[in-house]
Simulated scan of single mutants.
Amino acid sequence: MSLSQFDSQKRIGVLGGGQLGRMLHQSAINLNLNLQMMDPDENAPCASLIEDFTVGDLEDFDTVYAFGKECDVVTIEIEKVNTDALKKLQSEGVLVYPEPEVIALIQDKRIQKQFYKDNNIPTADFVLTESAEDLKQHEDKLPAVHKMGKGGYDGRGVQVIKSANDIEKGFNGPALLESFVPFKKELAVIVARNQAGEVESFPPVEMVFHPEHNLVEYLLSPALLAPEINEEAEKIAKELIVKLNMTGLLAVEMFLTKDNEILVNEIAPRPHNSGHQSIEGNFTSQYDQMLRAVLNLPLGDTNVKICSAMVNVLGEDGFTGEAKYEGMNEVLKIPGAHVHLYGKKITKPFRKMGHVTITDPSLASLRKKIETVKNTLKVKA
């Protein structure tokens, strides 16, 4: 089976029904596309929006296989899925994008890092560790970052180990120890590739992380970079998706070192937090581009329309329960502020509850608005 022209009747299955699926659904509506979704949470953000919504375990072979059998195309909004079921579906003619082999590679940070090394993709030096005892043999490589091979997400499964005194904080299982990179900026590039081999990347964005919880606090688009660095970041992202032989949307997180070297940190084969601002800030959003890529349609114009920022709306520390939004009226008065809430009823400390995109032609004005949104919009219970 192949897709060669636009067909709004294609049965498109999405594994995952969280906020990324919610925004993907909004793009699908514009093309009169109907998505089928499956998520383990009956109260997932997409549950009340998608007519064909299934509650199911994304890691169970039979559940994923049965869901995919009813689809022409299967894609993902989270990579924690059963890739064996996806491989079987692919062998039986269902189009699976991104390809199961790519998802499996990215699911394991150890294999992912080895792929960079084998394919000359610039990345930080690393060693593989098998246990807590094994980790103790590498004190000479500190300071470093210890990362679980599988299961880490949104800052979980990542531990900074500054000295031998911190080794006990490491993980007792398959992991990797990565040299600590003295970077000056953290960047991200979203890149897409369709089955026709067309590749387009979005201009790099600059990410600013929460100092304690390893979550993106806000980002600036486009990143403030010298032209040659901007060009190199996009080149690496395009090279990476081609070497992966991947169809779909790929988020590439990068470090810009103090020596102006670009190193790939991690990748995600789906829409990403670092691309949310593209809904208002770019001619094509990352969600539009993902649909174009997996349906083998012409890829869209990724250029920036206007300078923008994305501020994550996180649950306040110390509050768990039914979400209440303080400061919403004040934020809605800000020129260029676009509020996106994710439909999550329950807030928890630092849970992603939404984001605010801010557009402004003036960078100085944009920065002031970022601070206003950060200090004004609070999610409590």
Rank of each mutant, 00 (worst) to 15 (best):
S2L: 09
S4Y: 13
Q5T: 11
I12T: 04
G13C: 07
G18M: 14
L20W: 05
L20I: 06
G21V: 01
R22N: 07
H25C: 02
S27D: 14
I29L: 15
L31A: 10
D41H: 14
C46H: 00
E51W: 00
E51A: 12
T54N: 03
V55E: 12
G56P: 01
F61N: 06
T63G: 05
G68L: 13
K69V: 03
E70N: 15
V73H: 02
T75E: 08
L86T: 08
L86R: 06
L86G: 05
K88P: 00
G93T: 12
V96C: 12
E101S: 15
L105I: 07
R110N: 14
R110K: 15
R110Y: 00
Q112C: 06
Q114W: 05
Y116G: 02
D118K: 13
F126N: 01
L128F: 13
E130L: 03
S131G: 05
L135N: 02
H146I: 03
K147M: 06
M148A: 10
Q159I: 05
Q159K: 11
V160M: 10
V160F: 15
K162A: 14
S163N: 15
N165F: 03
D166Q: 11
V181I: 13
K185C: 05
R193Y: 11
N194K: 04
S201E: 11
F202M: 05
V205H: 02
V208K: 13
F209G: 05
P211L: 10
E212L: 09
H213Y: 15
L215Y: 01
V216F: 01
L220N: 03
P227Q: 09
N230Y: 09
A237V: 06
L240W: 01
K243G: 07
L244M: 14
N245P: 00
N260Q: 14
E261W: 00
L263W: 02
I267T: 03
P269D: 13
N273T: 07
M290D: 04
L291N: 09
V294Y: 04
V304I: 15
K305M: 13
K305E: 09
E316C: 11
D317F: 02
F319D: 02
T320A: 09
T320L: 03
K324C: 10
E330T: 07
I334M: 14
K344Q: 14
K345T: 13
H355A: 08
T357C: 09
T359P: 01
D360M: 03
K369N: 13
I370F: 05
T372F: 15
K378F: 07
K378T: 10
V379C: 12
K380P: 00
